[in-house]
Design a protein around this nucleic acid. Sequence first.
DNA 1: TATTGTTATACTCTATAACTATA
DNA 2: TATAGTTATAGAGTATAACAATA
Lengths: 150, 150
Amino acid sequence: MSDGTELATALVRLSHLVQRVFTDASRDHDLTQPQAQLLCALTPGPVGMTELSRILHLEKSSLTGLVDRVERRGLVARVRDDHDRRACQIQLTETGAELGERAHNDVVDRLDELTAGMPAEQRELVAAALFGLTTQTETGRQVFEPAAGS
Amino acid sequence: MSDGTELATALVRLSHLVQRVFTDASRDHDLTQPQAQLLCALTPGPVGMTELSRILHLEKSSLTGLVDRVERRGLVARVRDDHDRRACQIQLTETGAELGERAHNDVVDRLDELTAGMPAEQRELVAAALFGLTTQTETGRQVFEPAAGS
DNA sequence: TATTGTTATACTCTATAACTATA
DNA sequence: TATAGTTATAGAGTATAACAATA
């Protein structure tokens, strides 16, 4: 098993692991994984529904429900777009921003702990390689931005 | 942003990307992501419900439903355990094994394509690093095993 | 006409709690 | 008593199709 398959297998397993870490961390903040991802995606600033569905790779109708549930909890708000009366911008409330940051930091902490055994040199190398993969495909804002504070 | 956070961010983004590739590929074979993962987890051989719930990190009751739906489509079968009449083993049917292999190969193909730009040396390095991370945590059979045929 | 966002509908997925049958 | 697995229930997440309002 020394063919290309090896990397693919590693990627799938890693993805599964990270997914679990993300979900566990979200849960500890009373958030589902999609809800936490929504908050993280909104951290850099408000976005419209269409653009947000592109960032999260969700159908707009699915996003409507997700935003509904999170808005009901007072974590985000729909604010009117002055230039286009059809559109709205989804914005974090203060509570939502705080919760999102805590969840974000929690995820980062757990992943940092998980990778604590890797030598610095290897960390940078792997990080760069993975960033390369995601940048290849994604354009514009991504689901998970670096922490604002740090 | 040159602290440890960088690797964590890369991991989350990569996970999101791989998740999407996996889901898209599954869908093209008329499978949901959890269903495809179930088939992949069963490829090496039959497993009981308790062990399977451990592999997939699902509550047993959630697994019951998942197995039900996949069994209804004739992709897996519950076979009695001779030594313990409470237990059963979940086994791929011939159809299920074929479909699982096609889906598995499809995922690998897409990921290989995604990583085609990486030089061989870097591929091996990253693969080894990621395997290390997943092996650190997981024990026993994993969700995604290398292809049987190759 | 095209675009923004929502509604209606139907599944799948998931967890918690309570249960049955066997060990 | 403990363990293997299921059932009951409730809610979240998702997509497809049809829709309303605005551009």
